[in-house]
Nucleic acid binder design. Sequence first.
DNA 1: TTGTAAGCGTTATCAC
DNA 2: GTGATAACGCTTACAA
Lengths: 325, 325
Amino acid sequence: MATIKDVAKKAHVSVATVSRVINQKGYVNEETKQLVLQAIEELNYVPNELARSLFQKKSHIVAVMMPHLTSYYFSDLLEVIEDETINSNYRLMICNSKDDPEKESKYLKIFDQYNVDGIILISNTHRINDYLALSIPIIEIDHNLSDEVPSITSNNFLGGKLAAEKLVNSGCKKIIHFRGPSGLVTVQDRTSGFQSVLKAKGVETHTYDLAFISPDPLDIESKINAHPDVDGIFCDSDIIAILAIQSLKRANKKIPEDVQVIGFDNIQLSNMLEPKITTIEQSTEAIGKAALKSMMKLINGEELDYFHQTIDVKLIERDTTKKVF
Amino acid sequence: MATIKDVAKKAHVSVATVSRVINQKGYVNEETKQLVLQAIEELNYVPNELARSLFQKKSHIVAVMMPHLTSYYFSDLLEVIEDETINSNYRLMICNSKDDPEKESKYLKIFDQYNVDGIILISNTHRINDYLALSIPIIEIDHNLSDEVPSITSNNFLGGKLAAEKLVNSGCKKIIHFRGPSGLVTVQDRTSGFQSVLKAKGVETHTYDLAFISPDPLDIESKINAHPDVDGIFCDSDIIAILAIQSLKRANKKIPEDVQVIGFDNIQLSNMLEPKITTIEQSTEAIGKAALKSMMKLINGEELDYFHQTIDVKLIERDTTKKVF
DNA sequence: TTGTAAGCGTTATCAC
DNA sequence: GTGATAACGCTTACAA
C-alpha cells in the first residue's frame, strides 16, 4: 500500500505538500497540485485513516449499541442509521449488548481504545455513568437515562393516545393493553397516553406486561381467554399483535367485528399478514436521521436544536380495526 | 486519557517496560511488573488501539458486508457474527451495500484506509476482483464468487432434495417451486437438489423466480391461482411461504390437506404463525461460527480445513405438511 | 532486566 | 508556496 511518502517522491514534492492537497488546506500552486493528484491517481493512494486518527484523536467511527439484532423494529432502525452514518462520512461499529454486562464492559473499553467519535445508545443500560465517563458524545434512542445525554424518542404518549382514541371511537368497551416491560420509559409513556383517554371515557382496561423479545404466546392466550368479552386490544409491538390475533382466531373471534386490535411499530410484516394490522407507526427513518444530525452537531461542538427530541407517530388504519365515518 | 507515558512516569520505569507488561512479551521483573500493573490500574489506562494498529498494520477490525439489514435471515446471521467476532477479540464494522455500487466503492476504500483485518462478504457483488485487490482475507457466505476466496454455504442442494422428498413422500403430484433470483448459486443449488428428486419420480413442477427482498404477493397469488390443482409448494424463503399460505387461505385451500407448503431458512416467525411452517433450517449459528473460525485462521496465516465449506441443513416438520408414517 | 530511540503514516507549525 | 520536522501513542531492535 502506497504511503504519503511514495506520493511525495513520485511527485517530487514534500509530504507536507501532499498533505496540503489531500486536505485542501493551505496554499498550494495549481501546477504542483495537479502533479500530486496525478501521483495519487497512479499509485492508487488512499490516506491511512489510522495514522490520521492517531494524530487528530478522532477515528471517524461512530458506534451503535444495540439491545439485540434480531428484532424487526431495531433492524429497520439500524438500516437507517448505517445509511446516515456513511452519508455523514463516518463508519459504523456495531455493538450488541444483549443485556450482557460483560459484553458491555468490553465495548466500553473499546470505545476508549479506538477514539470512537460518538455513541448511539439504543440498548438499555444500567451503567450510563460509565458511558458519561468516556466523555464521548452520546445520543440515546428510545431512552432517557440521564438529563445529561440528549435523546430521540417517538412520541409514545401520543402513540398511546391515538390508539385509545381509535379504540374508543370504534366502540370498544373492554380493552386489554399488552404492553412491554413497565420499566421502560417508552412503555410508561404509551401507558400514560393510553390511560389518559380511557380514564376520561370510563372504559374498562386490563394491562399486562410482556417481554419485547420473544413475548410468550401462551401468556397472551391465557390473558385473552380470561376476558371472553374483551372487544379491543392494544399491543406495544406488532409482534405481540400478531400473537394476539392468532389467539383470537383460535377462540373463533372475528377481527375486527368482535375484537379490534392495534399494534405498534409498523414493521413491514404488519402490512403483509392477513388481516393487515392497524398500528402506530414509529418512523425509523425520522429517528435515524435525527440521531445522526444531532450526532454530527455534537461531534462538531455545535449546539443542539432540541436536547430531548420527540418524533411524531401516526395511526395507520388497516384491517384489524373498524372504519369509523 | 492516560497514555503509556503517564503509566511509565507513575511506575518510575520506561515506556518500553510498560509495553512489555501490557503485551506480556520480553523479560520483566515480577516486582516492576506489579508496579506497572498498579499504575495502570490507578490511571485507568487502556492502550490506544489506533497507535497500536498503526504500528502493527492491523486494526483488529473485521468488516461485514451485508446485502441489506432488514431481512430476518440475515439479521439472525448478523447477530451470530457480531457475537463470534467480539469473542475472537475483534470488532465489527458494519457495511450495508444495498446493491448500491457507490456505497460499495466507499466501503472498499474504507477497508484499505482502516487496515481492516478481514472481510466477511455476505452481499452479492459484481466486483469481487476489487475485493481481491485489497489483499485482505475474505470469507464469503452464501456465495461462491471466485475460486480464490473461501466460502461458507448451507448445503442448498440437500435443502432442495429434502424438500422434494418430503413433498413426494406425502403424496404431492403437482408442485410449484417459488424460488429466489435464479442468478444466485444458492438458488441454483436448491433447484438442482429439488429437481433431482422430482425428475426421478416424474412429478409435474412449475418453477417461478421471485425477489428475496419484498417478494410480490400479487405475483405469488396469480401463480397459485393459475394452478388450481397444485398440491405442494416449495418456497425458497419462509417469507415467501408466508405469502403463499395467505394466498392459499384466500383460495379456500386447506393446509396441509389440500396443499402442502415448505419454506426455507427457519426464521423465528415460521414457528410463531398459524399454521407453523414446515421448513428447511439453515443454521445461522453454524454458519456464523464457521465464518469466524475460518477468518481467524486466515488472519493468522493458518491453513483452512475446508476452502469451500458446506453446512448441513435440516427439514423441520411442522403443520404445513402431512405427517407420514 | 531495563532503557533509548527509531519508526508506523499522518498533520501542523514553523522557517525559508 | 514549499519543505523540514516534531508530534500523535505505541512497539521493538538494540544497547546497556
